[in-house]
Amino acid sequence: MEGKPGITFNQLAKVAEHFGRGVLFFLESEPVQPERIHTPAFRTLANQKPELSIKVKSLIERVEKQRTVYLALRDELENPDLTEFSPPDLPQNAPQAAADIARVWLGLNDVNDFETYRSAVEAQGILVFRSNGYNGKWQIAKESPILGFTLYAEDCPVIVIKKQQSEARQSFTLMHELGHLLLHRISSIDDENDMHSRLGYEREANEFAGLMLVPDTFLQKIDDTARPRHVDQYDDWLKGCRRDWGVSTEVILRRLLDSGRLSQQQYAAYRRWHAGLQVPQLDGGSRAYRSREPIHIFGDTFVRAVLGALSRRRITLSKASNYLDGLKINDLHQLEKHYAGL
């Protein structure tokens, strides 16, 4: 500054907003202490991916604040339906056994999709957020390589999934992040490369996800003699399995590869073919059901906690709106009616 004209208050406010801070943060005279600003989970993710954008870092902080809100509401409501996280003890170096135990713990059936997987995970005391498709504070940008992250906590972990074109891919990301929670008990942030890694914790999380989504009993339903000669027909060959299990063709092929029923050449050929497909990019879509967007973003568990606190007058309409992505009062009432079945 040195006696020269400084930036205006409005300019400072914009700088603060860019970094997810209030203006007063930049007016503090004391040195910044990182350990007071960021949680251990945040620092873990930042160390794993030092190149994280400001938007992703701000999203992580925002998720942590929502988790704090949820815990306060859960303690206030004393609702037995809001389950506390109590993970099973999974055997190490025994991926099939670990996945079998986890599937029983989640109570999974033979037919699933992303929403049933999400509901099963939430029922075990884990919050599952999904970024929305609109440019805003709850979006992971389409161009970002980040597909999901996990904030580990003993009382209530959070899994965040990037909204993708295919819900089957979201299912794999969800189970990959669940693997980090149950097997490694750590916070983790993952991109496209991590979802195909053959090293360390990422390899274990990928193997766990594959076994969770396609256990050996599922593989027995696939007829190898019916496998087409050309990889561009694999999607049709596995269409019924993909629909029932809520997974992508690639996940099934990877399981067949690991089981010795598919060659590396066939698997690689399919991936090359699929990578060359031109997938149409969808726009943000219609916001005709704006009142239900908080369910898609924060999940049923979080939304029910907020509405429960509102109905018992533990929080105001203004706070409920703030917790639910700035939902307008009229939309908030529509959301209440949706849960009331009206």
Rank of each mutant, 00 (worst) to 15 (best):
T217N: 05
T217K: 11
T217M: 01
F218N: 13
Q220W: 04
Q220G: 12
Q220D: 07
Q220R: 06
K221I: 03
K221F: 00
K221D: 10
I222H: 06
I222Y: 08
D224V: 00
D224I: 01
D224E: 09
T225S: 11
T225W: 13
A226F: 14
P228N: 09
R229H: 08
R229T: 07
H230D: 06
H230T: 07
H230C: 00
V231F: 00
D232P: 00
Q233L: 12
Y234C: 00
Y234F: 15
D235H: 07
D236M: 08
D236I: 06
D236G: 13
D236S: 11
L238A: 11
K239G: 04
K239P: 02
G240V: 08
G240W: 08
G240C: 04
G240K: 07
C241Q: 14
R242T: 12
R243H: 15
R243G: 05
R243C: 09
D244T: 07
W245L: 04
W245A: 05
G246D: 06
G246R: 02
G246T: 03
V247H: 07
V247T: 12
S248H: 09
S248T: 13
S248C: 11
S248P: 03
S248Y: 08
S248K: 08
S248D: 09
T249H: 04
E250S: 10
E250C: 04
V251C: 09
V251F: 09
I252S: 05
I252E: 01
L253H: 15
L253R: 15
R254C: 00
